[in-house]
Simulated scan of single mutants.
Amino acid sequence: MTGTHGTHSTPVTLLHTAEALRARARDGRRAVVMTMGALHDGHASLIRAARRAAGPDGEVVVTVFVNPLQFGAGEDLDRYPRTLDADVKIAEQAGADAVFAPAVDEVYPGGEPQVRVSAGPMGTVLEGATRPGHFDGMLTVVAKLLHLTGPDVALFGQKDAQQLALIRRMVRDLDFPVEIVGVPTVREDDGLALSSRNRYLSPEERRTALALSRALFAGRDGLAAREALRARAASAPATRARADA
């Protein structure tokens, strides 16, 4: 089992403790991709982007951790898919050097942390309005994983736009010494954004879910068409004037 890392191939290393991660020799840039596991092609795209960011002499670390702090009451913490063996294979094939898969008590020794990161006003709108506390839990674990992995660059998908905006704001406001890079959304053939939770959808729910992306694409295409018409109209008088001259 080997992965392609620029000009060399090495098997991925599976780590479960922060001590083991700290013990790894570091050469070049470290790029980190944070996941909750159940990896798919969208995650693989992030890992390939991390490989490019780290360079052939750098290191790519993929974290796999289902964070209990960001699941609300009645959400799918207990049934969230956990597929570590498959995740390790996907991470390796995409170019990762290490997979860091800590247990809950490794990330939160002594139970849930009393001190947490607050998402502030940005965390109470849009998705945060219907999932109170979700973004506080997300930022808390991202902050902890940034400390534990110590990356030069961390990559996140643009699919979770509010999450990405909040992570950028946290890094700026709290002076984390890391570059945050957003990676474009990867979609299935029918246009649905890839997600580990897509497996929950019935055929009818999947058709309903497609309405959002189709509406967004239609709005984008309509705006582009109107801008093209305006640009053509604006250039028409100048074109006629040159012809008359």
Rank of each mutant, 00 (worst) to 15 (best):
M1C: 05
T4C: 10
H5C: 11
H5W: 12
G6W: 12
G6P: 07
P11S: 12
P11M: 08
L14D: 07
L14R: 11
L15S: 06
L15D: 05
H16G: 11
H16T: 15
A20P: 02
A20Q: 14
L21H: 06
R24S: 06
R30Y: 07
A31G: 11
V33I: 07
T35N: 12
T35A: 13
T35R: 10
G37N: 03
G37V: 05
G37H: 02
G37D: 04
H40L: 07
A44S: 11
R48C: 04
A49D: 11
A50E: 02
A50W: 04
A54T: 13
A54S: 12
A54R: 06
D57F: 09
G58N: 04
V62D: 10
V62M: 14
V64A: 06
V66A: 02
L69D: 00
Q70Y: 10
D78Q: 15
Y80I: 03
R82M: 03
T83C: 03
T83P: 01
D87A: 01
D87W: 00
A91K: 03
V99P: 07
V104H: 01
D105L: 02
D105V: 05
P109Q: 09
P109N: 09
P109L: 06
G111N: 11
G111A: 09
Q114C: 07
V115P: 00
V115S: 11
V117N: 07
V117C: 01
V117L: 06
S118C: 06
S118P: 02
P121M: 03
P121F: 08
T124Q: 13
L126V: 14
G128W: 05
G128V: 10
A129G: 10
T130K: 13
R131T: 07
G133Y: 01
F135M: 06
D136V: 00
D136Q: 10
L139M: 08
T140H: 10
T140K: 06
T140P: 03
V141W: 02
V141C: 06
V142H: 02
A143Y: 09
K144V: 04
L145N: 02
L146P: 00
H147W: 13
H147M: 09
G150S: 14
P151S: 08
L155Q: 01
L155R: 06
F156D: 00
G157L: 05
K159G: 12
D160R: 10
Q163S: 09
A165E: 12
L166K: 00
R169G: 08
R169A: 15
R172S: 13
R172G: 03
D175H: 09
D175S: 12
V181Y: 00
G182C: 11
G182E: 07
G182S: 06
V183Q: 08
R187W: 11
E188S: 13
G191E: 06
A193V: 12
A193Y: 00
S195G: 04
S195C: 03
R197W: 11
R197C: 04
N198P: 03
R199I: 15
Y200C: 09
L201K: 09
S202R: 13
E204S: 13
E205K: 14
E205C: 11
R207D: 15
R207K: 12
R207G: 07
A209I: 03
A211P: 01
A215K: 15
A215W: 03
L216T: 13
F217H: 11
G219E: 15
G222Y: 07
L223N: 05
A224Q: 14
R226Y: 08
E227S: 07
E227Y: 08
R232H: 13
T239R: 13
A241I: 04
A243Y: 13
A245L: 14
